[in-house]
Simulated scan of single mutants.
Amino acid sequence: MVSDQVLPRAATQPCVSQCRFSSFLDQEKALPKFDQKYRQMTAGAFEGTIKSLDFGAVTLTRERLNQGLEQHSAVHTGTVAVGFLMGSGIMHDLSKDETLRGEAMLLPGGYEHISYVEGESDWVIASIAQDVLPDDMLQGRVLAPEVARPVGAWMRTLIEVAGSGAEAQGLMTLVPDLVMDRLSLLFGHPAQDGLRHNRREAQLFRRILNACEELPPEELTVSGLSRHLGCTRADLRGACLSVTGFRLDDMLTARRLSDVYRVLRGARVDAVNVTQTALNHGFTHFGRFSVAYRKMFGERPSDTLRA
């Protein structure tokens, strides 16, 4: 059982912020107390929102996204985040070579975590200064949905009420203590069994991700990975599907399309050539690239460049 923790009482109301996003590149920069890099995995125009309540030692955030993403996330050093995935989702934790499936997970600061969520997602996150947490809450664990969901739903309600004028007088001042009370009860429950994935598949998927960073774009194919890693195509495809829920062929294409999007959106019109950028990322047929790009992002490559 987690020991009681008492936070300094907030003297003022929290800082409330809310933003809407039409690009995953903008949203990846906006999550408080996280460093992130996103890649879009499913087709369609991106829409997302982030709303946060910042109390200093405790920050509550709700992040919503309408597309499937590959999310590389690192909680800031000195902070611990408790994430509630209010829906279906999978997280592959590179720091432990484990694949976690559940609705609440503890993410220590200073480590990279990768999550894959298919379709729309709704995250509720409590980011807490590490020095106010008990040691036994820093081990990292995943909690069963029936245990975690009520706490995540309660935090989501707090976030949505804040700033609406409907919050009770003085309630927001109590929120940091209330959050710690709920989390101390939550982490008194045993960790969920059966959420960790087959270690062999998790380790193979990590090798796939490492190879994606090492190989040139023209070799980022299933056959190229098979040669580089010395594994069969079937094993590679099986590991990717099991860990992420995405077909390996689709994941590789989506990664390259997202990387092209990142280059185009951050460039000056006169400094980047769309065709050359596509070639640099392994797309050798410009017509098929243009069709795939527009299907993925809901706009033409030239539209992104002019944005």
Rank of each mutant, 00 (worst) to 15 (best):
R256I: 08
G230H: 04
I208P: 03
G298T: 09
R149S: 11
W123P: 05
D131S: 14
T275Y: 12
L204R: 15
Q5P: 13
I128T: 03
A144P: 09
E118P: 11
L195K: 09
A254P: 00
G87S: 12
P217L: 10
L229W: 14
V274L: 02
V272W: 01
I128C: 01
G56Y: 02
G298N: 07
V6N: 10
V80H: 06
P176T: 01
A126W: 00
T59P: 03
W123L: 08
A211C: 04
D250L: 07
A11C: 10
G188I: 00
H72C: 14
T284N: 08
F246Y: 15
L204V: 14
R182P: 02
A278I: 06
L305V: 02
T99Q: 14
Q139A: 11
G188S: 13
D93E: 09
Y293H: 00
Y111G: 08
Q203A: 15
E201A: 15
G119A: 06
C212L: 04
T232M: 01
P8Q: 11
Y261W: 07
H113W: 00
G152P: 00
V263K: 11
P301Y: 00
A81M: 03
L138F: 07
G165L: 09
D131H: 12
S3P: 10
A239C: 10
S184Q: 02
A10G: 06
F34P: 07
P176K: 02
E219I: 05
G83E: 14
E28H: 03
A168P: 15
G102V: 03
G78K: 04
K295N: 12
Q27N: 02
V291S: 10
E160Y: 02
L60S: 02
R262S: 07
R149C: 05
V263I: 13
D97R: 13
L69Q: 05
G56N: 01
T42L: 01
A166I: 08
S95R: 10
L178A: 04
S127D: 01
V161R: 10
L220H: 01
G44P: 13
E201S: 15
T59W: 01
N66Q: 04
T232A: 06
L94S: 09
D249S: 15
D131L: 06
H285D: 10
C231D: 12
W154H: 00
D250P: 05
M155I: 03
G140A: 04
A307L: 09
N210V: 12
A57H: 03
